[in-house]
Design a protein around this nucleic acid. Structure first.
Lengths: 256, 256
DNA sequence: GAGTGGTCTAGACCACACA
DNA sequence: GTGTGGTCTAGACCACTCT
């Protein structure tokens, strides 16, 4: 059943404590395959006896292994080895969805058209819905606020909102609050997931005129899909001139 | 000094424990401004006395507030209110840096040129270094492995490695391992941060020929900067045809 | 020195899974 | 029932900051 007792834990030279030695030993036994994936770790009580540590400390160590995805704990069952290798995890964190819109403040959105539509052929793919599904569609342009009065368009925007969320309060001609935020406030819901795609796109024709760039300029098309649970509630597309918009992000090593 | 004693904590109807009531009270006092940003929370000992909870439980609650970014703890000082509003945090997690390269496997990188260069004028900006700094520069093309033998280029790639990491093992004509990984292995280091920028770019001239797309096609230029601590160690640029490459990502609500 | 948060021990009870 | 992890209490010592 349970694996054999550990070799005696011996803090290595320097400052290493018994607790550190236990963590190191468990990790190395897991990565070496001595404790294969799927096997159970000794129980917390056993680890306490083997090491002389208190259960508090043992639990903290096992908790760290859990955070690293090496093991998983189940009440009534035990602690199972889940992965042999601690992944280095890089994490991008955002304070709010607004950080997705990197131009969050200092810009202005002007609504041009607004109305209920039924998904046409070309939109079914974008909206992941059957032909004819009803959506609120809002189109407009987002402008940057430059010092001089000549505001430059940052993006040509199209927003789709699922019909059952199609009457958010506060959606006027020049809304100051993002639509997703209006939805959250009006319906008392919270988006649980946002997917984003970034496409390269050449800006031509009407779009070039709207965005005030030469025909054939480079641009980014950003598509975002907002979910509440499994339900797709909002889809936005933004076409950004490359010369005025770079999408940047940072990832931090989140290992410990 | 310390804020006035709390109103008596009273678990609300239902299943709420004293601990839940403490957490709820602290949160509401912080968000209402009764405990303004910058002020100190009562000490852990005081909270124990006020609530009758053990320090373990109080610490766990304060720990949760810390995770949410509401407060920050400093040994010897106390617990400071950091933000009035618990931000909903959306998190993107990756198993490894490889997930940045979304085409991770099933592609092949072919080196075309390789050599030590000194940063020219145009490169100083990209490499964030003074004119004349030495870098290993590797250029090549990444191909997708399609079923038929006709491999299509996915990206025209340029890689810069800081001179002191400029001799990684295993960098041949057609390396199977990403360069960042070779560096980590050869020098026993670990990248701590990766920054990424995505630009829209029109593919023209030689690049269009290399990537086998019509002149003037849309593309994405992706610039990545790899850091070890504050030191910029590797910079890569990849020019991707829009028709064969979409950058997509997902963000999950990580609130609790 | 006095007071803070950080860590740890020792012991208890509970909710849950399995036989 | 028995044993697991989950939670909690009570008390101790330490490292750190400020006076």
């Amino acid at each position: 059943m349970a694996p054999e007792a550990n070799v005696k834990l011996m803090p290595r030279g320097g400052e290493e404590s018994i607790a550190d030695a236990l963590e190191r030993t468990l990790k190395s036994e897991i990565s070496s395959g001595k404790r294969p994936v799927g096997s159970l770790l000794p129980t917390e009580t056993e680890l306490c006896q083997q090491t002389g540590l208190s259960r508090y400390t043992v639990r903290k160590i096992v908790g760290r292994l859990t955070e690293q995805g090496l093991v998983s704990r189940q009440q009534g069952i035990g602690t199972t080895v889940m992965a042999a290798q601690a992944q280095s995890r890089y994490v991008q964190t955002m304070g709010s969805i607004e950080d997705l819109f990197q131009y969050a403040s200092g810009t202005e959105f002007k609504v041009e058209k607004r109305g209920i539509v039924r998904a046409a052929d070309a939109e079914c793919d974008l909206l992941q819905c059957p032909l004819g599904t009803k959506w609120l569609r809002v189109s407009g342009v987002r402008y940057g606020k430059s010092q001089d009065s000549a505001q430059k368009p940052i993006a040509q925007v199209m927003i789709y909102v699922a019909a059952r969320y199609g009457e958010p309060h506060g959606l006027g001609k020049s809304p100051k609050t993002p639509v997703y935020s209006l939805i959250e406030a009006s319906y008392g819901v919270r988006f649980t997931r946002v997917e984003q795609e970034i496409h390269g796109r050449v800006i031509a024709g009407d779009a070039a005129v709207t965005l005030a760039v030469p025909d054939g300029s480079a641009g980014l098309l950003i598509v975002r899909r907002y979910y509440i649970g499994e339900e797709l509630v909002e889809v936005t597309t933004g076409l950004h001139p490359a010369e005025r918009f770079i999408y940047s992000m940072a990832f931090q090593l989140a290992n410990r």
